[in-house]
Amino acid sequence: MARPKLAEFTSANHPVRRIRRIKELLIEAVLFAAAASSVFVTLGIVYILVSESLPFFAHVSFTEFLTEREWTPLFAEPKYGILPLLCGTFLTTVIALLLAIPLGTIIATYLSEYANARAREILKPILELLAAVPTVVYGYFALLFVTPLLQKIMPNLPGFNVLAAGLVIGVMIIPYVSSLTEDAMRAVPGYLREASYAVGASRMQTAFRVVIPAAFSGISSAYILGISRALGETMVVAIAAGMQPNLTLNPTEPAATITAFIVQVSLGDLPHGSVGYQSIYVAGLTLLILTLTFNVIGFALRKRFREVY
């Protein structure tokens, strides 16, 4: 039997090549659909949030929403000022970050620049276990362990307070911050470290003056992810911070965050279409805008500090 010539296979009309072209087109379509689905979900969420929020603003003026100092949508005389919720969200996030950013960065520096392979192999999985604990467990940890512990130092601390919730969220997001920061630091090429050591720098100087600045673009992503996680955290604050909208910057008081309010209300029995019901969507939209802002800032930071090495 004569063997087919290579030229036959390489002609553009050969069935093998036609099938290959069709396969390519199909694969491309499937991949595109997968990528597009996430975009559609996002657009769908934005559409629902905006369309449910618009009627709300027919009842409540935008100025009232932004300047009113109380948030009581469920009272007989409801007031709709977002400030107390923003304040609670802001406060828990700041407390969480004050803990998670320094600690996460230090852990990452240790793992990337100091630890030997063995120590890293043991420590990393344990650290990542922190991210695997369900948030509801963290919530009760804050309420039943951290708060009583803090009360030993501050006897007047109420059972529900922002401080314990913020600290526990901080612990929760440490693995996100440290893991991404470490990845960014380890991506810094070895020749930059050698250059630093070669002029007599210590490990600490090399880490803080060369590696961290060179990795700053990636590190800023890690921080932004941490911020987004802290802003959106729900269970811990709902359980441990008290669910009382409270315009205060005092972390030893109870307060509610945007997320805590949403759970609280959506668990109740508000009639569909009422202003109280719509307020959930407004709160959700506010949160979305908040996290979106941080993501945009993060994107800009990443671009600004992208190092060419």
Partner: peptide, 19 residues
Amino acid sequence: MEVRMRIGMVFQKPNPFPK
């Protein structure tokens, strides 16, 4: 570190810091 304080080095591939 003390040794490297006294003895300098230039590498095969130019490796300036991103500074």
